[in-house]
Design a protein around this nucleic acid. Sequence first.
RNA 1: CGGGGAGUGGCUCAGCCUGGUAGAGCACCUGGUUCGGGACCAGGGGGUCGGAGGUUCGAAUCCUCUCUCCCCGACCA
Length: 581
Amino acid sequence: MHRWSRLFIPTLREAPADAEVASHKFLVRSGYIRQLGAGIYSYLFLGQRSINKIIAIVRQEMDRIGQEFLLPGIMPSEIWKESGRWTGMGQNMFRLQDRKGAELCLGMTHEEVVTDIARKELRSYKQLPQIWYQIQTKYRDEPRPKAGLLRVRTFIMKDSYSFDLDEAGLDLSYKKHDQAYRAIFTRCGLSFVAVEADSGAMGGSQSQEFMVYTDAGEDLIVSCPKCGYAANLEKATSRLERVDELASTGDGKPELVHTPGKASIADVAEFFQILPAQDIKTVAYMAEVRDGKKTTWEPVVAFLRGDHSVNETKLAGVTKASELRPMVAEELEKFFGGPAGYLGPIGLGVSKHLHDRGVNVILDKSLEGRENMVAGANKFDYHYRNVTPGRDFGWTVSADIRSVAEGEACPLCGSPLKIGKAVEVGHIFKLGNRYTDVMGARVLDPNGKEVTPIMGCYGIGIERILTASIEQNNDTNGFWLPRAIAPFDVVVTVTNISDAKLLATGEEVAGSLEAAGFDVLLDDRDERAGVKFKDADLIGIPYRINVGKKAAEGKVELVTRARASSEDVVLGEVAQRLASQ
RNA sequence: CGGGGAGUGGCUCAGCCUGGUAGAGCACCUGGUUCGGGACCAGGGGGUCGGAGGUUCGAAUCCUCUCUCCCCGACCA
């Protein structure tokens, strides 16, 4: 039994000044964590207990499908150079040198390490499939750590890696993880959604994120309340309603119109008395393209419906850009011949294929088949009308490069879509042979033919489970965790320890609860009752047994933190009663 | 990396504009009274005012540089 009077649980009456989100405030106030530096935290007694419970659940579910390893937290640069990520991963990696000057890095992820093991040890298809996992601290030099434990520079991650002979095998490993993750997050008491995710520049084929809705989240999730469709905004699509086309004017060809001072979509729409959807939006970028060792910057111009917004993740995916930045004025002048506000598609030197000479013009699919639109004329204070894509201008690639907006129709069932903020707690990812191939992992298949195993990787942010849970379960007085991940199941509060009888009763109750298998914290501090109640409400423990006034009648109170409800329980029945909660 | 904000006792902050040698509340220690929703009274301990340099008779306060933290953006296999 843990006696509060002897523990270090530094609760704070006030939230630290630099905390913004609820989980951050409460984690600090409740004495779970203390900050050492930006994105660097110590986990104190309560925090560590909660983390341990989360890890135990993750471990238990993962052991059903895989094998736990412990991998190095520090590693030589060579394997990263082999995979091409020594430069590719760039700035997010903590790098260091040993005394001989050799380059090392702190482990931010372990694909290279497990692939190195795989290539040295795996010889035959008979050894496949393999699922290896680790639960370890990872180090990432985040450009901007924030929101307490939500985005940090050192954190605990469950990462697993699967090796399979073929796609069918990978499908199975992926599916196993999907199921394990659902079991894990369910057991942790989280309300979560699995969403389609962007596979990124990794070239993976399929990817799913496990998200918990909260305003503290950094991701935007598009979902359909009707059919269950859910996707990261970076990936989401929607069904669009047909837009009424404008009637053509004059001879039907693009007509130059003087539009003094009309530099925004809204102004132009008002000027022409049209809908923004009848206007063409032009967004101009310079894209960084890495081709092996060579890095070049190419012009990329996106055309979209006036009422749509460009989705840079999609655009980067389509153009294979490692980075996108808006064009500066000189570049606009160079490629368009006109200034921002009056950019348009007519007269651009369009490249035939991506990365060819010329401007990479990416047309959003929603503009295909449209006609008589309004667009900038690449001339200060002028626009065109009667602009018809295909007839009046061409493009390099047509693709979905826009962001879905709230209320648009679900791509599956047509119901209005919702958009909400969420935290990513897990991610499963079909990697393919990207690492196994370049690092030379090969096995012989049943025909004696050499094949490259294909990989999947699967991560869970341990602290994010705790953080997300707090975000979901808090009020002004504190938070409550589900029993499965709370540092203690129950706190037994003795309202006045100077009453020896009362203290003895509290110890007896705590002892009986412990005997019944509960994790019990006995609040035997020499504090006033009010202080103890406030602390108990603050620190995330789901139940409180109050040993006070009614003890004389042989009763205690069972307080359920989530509902702030209280019921009297006869002394002998406490364990039984709690177990039935 | 761009923009904004903040560093004063353990915590939350005032003082800075208009220089005169540091304060409040909470926390902590001692004694007493209290004891079911963060008690009260009395006494007490604790601060290189983030750091360095400069201006000045005198700097928490003015100037320069620098470090750190927070927020927005960029970024985020």
